[in-house]
């Protein structure tokens, strides 16, 4: 239902975003192909988070179009994206492994994938602890381990490196690199250089009509 057909790309045409009364950006056009990494940059309020939410279908598209190239008739953006916002979606009373097992079951992933996904961010030995005792960085890692758990071609990451230490940033970089190698695409708003070759940059600061 989700990854059966490979996505050949994402095309955004003349996308506009209006929040409240303010126009955040307009006439934004770009294309993302499999294996592409697109880095969103721009000052606060330039619309990085808004763009990511629009792409995920979590924010109204005021004008313009988002097209999935090669997607099936009934496939929507929500079927192909994995969104990681600045909130971790971690429940403190649940154990670390319970947190991830839930997402596995909810997204139809086999329970055997939970352990390797925790290991991707070196959380395997903490699986039995309640998530409430984790530090902010560890919670973030737990949230990001969904990337290793759920197989989706397009990742939308909103400041994924916040509160991560250097080792975890490296782990995230590795995970992203292997995702790109296997034909996945990533659009990420981040200030940190993750050392990914061929990263394209989309600058949203030229508010009027950034394009690539």
């Amino acid at each position: 239902m989700t990854t059966s057909e490979p996505l050949t790309g994402l095309t955004v045409t003349k996308l506009c975003c209006v929040r409240g009364e303010r126009q955040v950006f307009r006439d934004l056009s770009f294309h993302v192909a499999p294996g592409d990494m697109l880095s969103l940059v721009g000052p606060n309020g330039s619309g990085k988070s808004s763009l990511l939410r629009q792409l995920a279908g979590l924010l109204e598209v005021t004008d313009g179009e988002i097209n999935l190239d090669g997607a099936g008739e009934d496939q929507t953006v929500a079927d192909v994206v994995l969104y990681a916002g600045h909130l971790d979606a971690v429940k403190a009373p649940l154990r670390v492994s319970e947190n991830l097992s839930f997402w596995a079951a909810f997204y139809g992933v086999s329970a055997t994938q939970v352990e390797p996904a925790l290991e991707a961010f070196s959380l395997g030995h903490l699986g039995h602890l309640p998530a409430g005792v984790l530090s902010a960085g560890q919670k973030r890692r737990l949230g990001l381990s969904r990337l290793a758990l759920i197989d989706r071609p397009l990742w939308l990451l909103d400041e994924p490196t916040v509160s991560l230490d250097t080792a975890s940033i490296a782990a995230l970089g590795d995970l992203m690199r292997s995702h790109l190698k296997t034909g996945g695409s990533i659009i990420a708003a981040t200030h940190v250089d993750l050392g990914l070759e061929g990263t394209r940059v989309l600058d949203l600061s030229s508010n009027g009509g950034a394009s690539l």
Binding site: L58, A78, Y83, G85, A89, W103
Partner: peptide, 14 residues
């Protein structure tokens, strides 16, 4: 909604 879970519930295949 407060901890970001809601976004992921909405985006899930179910």
């Amino acid at each position: 909604q407060e901890d970001g879970t809601l976004d992921l519930l909405v985006l899930a295949p179910q």
